[in-house]
């Protein structure tokens, strides 16, 4: 990535104009249709550490995922969206409470097609910005990288206690949340989330920076972190989540799922997140019963779905180190200030 002087306002406007156009051109060329779903919603997908911003009588969308899946359940076919999304108290050089998520779903597609979209979008946006993209892309299993960096082979179905011991042995600080009286699913979700968060900070970030000239997809997540992705068999080990994350220049850009279609499994995962949120003292969030009803009643077509942060991609494309350097936000709340 080249280093660039801070962009002036006309250059920023030009950058966004080119990027938005090239993103739309990519998906239109691939036969996806553009949608625009509400920014204010009744419910958000439950995640342990993604906090919505209240907008009475609803919430600002943290992602367009549930709204787009409900369209898929109604026969939309493959769709994409460039959505404004909001996540409370996430402000930093690479975080903004409001940002642009490019989200797309390919019906009847495998996850590999989602990865190819990521690669094509990254290349196209960086090209129109005049930057230099990754020379090549590699895919790794996330537990293979854990093995490479920590020297321990995890299966992905380890219990909370095993992870706590491993973390202690490797000097990874895990926040102790008093979860002993919570059920197994909640404890496993808490432990895997905390373990991989700390590992990511201490080990994955340097590992990625050593490969900054390449694009990296990490896949095969532990089932506890499947979120809204399907579990699949890989070889004769335990099942893994059909989910990937993509990184460029050490920066996390995208997250993709082979979408979970089983309403019962989806409900159980949301309930586990709700349990963890309760244990952490986070404000309760209601389950989106209408979304779960659509999964159950109408059925979600087999689909691969991906979300990619457009602001971060533009930051990388021009060689900037903060979202503030490419943002068009003039004094809007929740955006990183210059120098953040």
């Amino acid at each position: 990535m080249r280093r660039a002087a801070p962009l002036g306002w006309p250059e920023r406007v030009d950058l966004w104009d080119r990027a938005l156009a090239v993103v739309r051109a990519h998906f239109r060329g691939e036969g996806l249709r553009e949608v625009s779903t509400p920014v204010r919603v009744a419910h958000v997908a439950l995640e342990p550490y993604i906090e919505p911003i209240a907008a009475p009588p609803g919430l600002l969308a943290t992602s367009p995922e549930l709204a787009m899946k409900r369209l898929l359940c109604r026969g939309s076919g493959s769709i994409f969206q460039i959505a404004h999304v909001f996540r409370r108290a996430e402000i930093g050089a690479r975080h903004s409470e409001e940002f642009h998520l490019i989200e797309w779903y390919r019906v009847e597609a495998a996850l590999a097609e989602g990865r190819r979209d990521v690669e094509a979008l990254v290349a196209a946006v960086i090209e129109v910005a005049g930057g230099e993209g990754p020379r090549r892309w590699e895919s790794h299993g996330i537990l293979d990288v854990v093995d490479e960096t920590l020297g321990v082979r995890l299966r992905g179905d380890e219990e909370a206690g095993v992870l706590a011991e491993l973390a202690a042995a490797r000097g990874l600080p895990l926040v102790a949340v008093g979860l002993d009286d919570h059920d197994l699913e909640v404890r496993r979700l808490a432990a895997w989330t905390a373990f991989l968060s700390e590992w990511s900070d201490r080990h994955l970030d340097p590992w990625l920076l050593a490969r900054a000239e390449r694009g990296i997809h990490l896949g095969d997540f532990p089932p506890a972190l499947a979120a809204l992705a399907e579990l699949v068999e890989v070889g004769d080990g335990p099942r893994v989540a059909a989910r990937f994350e993509s990184f460029v220049g050490g920066v996390e850009l995208a997250n993709g799922y082979q979408e979970l279609r089983d309403a019962g499994d989806q409900r159980r995962r949301f309930v586990a997140v709700a349990g963890l949120r309760r244990a952490l003292g986070l404000p309760p969030l209601a389950l989106d019963q209408a979304f779960l009803g659509d999964l159950e009643g109408r059925g979600l077509p087999r689909a691969a779905g991906v979300a990619l942060g457009l602001d971060r991609l533009l930051m990388l494309a021009v060689g900037a180190s903060s979202l503030a350097d490419i943002s068009l936000a003039l004094g809007a709340p929740g955006h990183p200030a210059d120098g953040a």
Partner: peptide, 12 residues
Amino acid sequence: FQFVKPGKGQGL
């Protein structure tokens, strides 16, 4: 002050 957060993980 620096805020970092892996994807769906915990913020640091």
